[in-house]
Amino acid sequence: MTAPEPPEIIEVDDTRVSCDGGGGPLGHPVVWYTIGDEGYVECKYCDRRFVLKAGAETHAH
């Protein structure tokens, strides 16, 4: 049995990110996330992990 593939990791410059799963119609509904103090957030649909780049600006609320 093979180990599951790790989630796709996407480095971003902003704490506010959106995810649609990629793949156009094969993706999922667009969802928005805010990266908190932990420096990353994972999509609840497709498990993509969005990681904040070092020195990136925080999103103005």
Score class of each variant (00 low, 15 high):
Ile9Tyr: 07
Asp47Asn: 14
Arg16Ala: 12
Ala54Pro: 06
Val17Tyr: 01
Arg49Asp: 01
Glu11Ala: 03
Val17Lys: 02
Asp37Glu: 06
Thr15Lys: 04
Ala54Met: 06
Val31Ser: 11
Ser18Glu: 13
Pro29Gln: 11
Gly21Asp: 00
Thr15Phe: 05
Asp47Thr: 11
His59Glu: 07
Gly23Gln: 03
Lys44Trp: 12
Val17Cys: 01
Tyr45Lys: 15
Arg48Cys: 04
Gly36Cys: 09
Glu38Thr: 11
Asp13Leu: 09
Val12Tyr: 01
Cys19Asn: 09
Thr15Tyr: 05
His28Gln: 13
Gly39Asn: 07
Leu26Met: 12
Arg49Glu: 08
Glu11Phe: 01
Gly39Trp: 04
Pro6Thr: 07
Asp47Leu: 07
Leu26Gly: 08
Tyr40Glu: 14
Gly22Asp: 06
Thr34His: 12
Tyr40Ala: 06
Ala56Val: 02
Glu8Asn: 12
Ser18Arg: 14
His28Tyr: 11
Glu11Cys: 01
Val30His: 06
Arg16Leu: 11
Gly22Pro: 06
Lys44Leu: 14
Arg48Asn: 07
Gly21Ala: 00
Thr15Ser: 10
Leu52Tyr: 01
Pro25Trp: 07
Leu52Val: 05
Glu42Asp: 12
Thr34Tyr: 09
Pro29Thr: 09
Lys53Arg: 15
Gly55Asp: 14
Pro7Ile: 14
Asp14Gln: 14
Arg16Val: 00
Cys43Ser: 03
Glu42Pro: 01
Pro7Glu: 10
Gly39Asp: 09
Val41Phe: 05
Cys43Gln: 00
Cys46Ala: 07
Pro25Phe: 10
Asp20Asn: 14
Asp47Phe: 08
Val12Phe: 01
Val30Ser: 14
Glu11Leu: 00
Trp32Gly: 10
Asp37Ala: 09
Glu8Ser: 13
Leu26Ile: 00
Cys19Tyr: 10
Val51Arg: 11
Thr34Asn: 10
Ala56Gln: 05
Thr15Glu: 07
Val12Ala: 05
Asp14Ser: 13
Gly24Glu: 05
Cys43Glu: 02
Gly24Leu: 06
Arg16Glu: 09
Glu11Lys: 08
Glu5Tyr: 09
Leu52Glu: 01
Gly21Tyr: 02
Val30Lys: 13
Tyr33Met: 14
Tyr45Leu: 14
Leu52Pro: 01
Ala54Asn: 00
Val41Ser: 02
Gly36Asp: 13
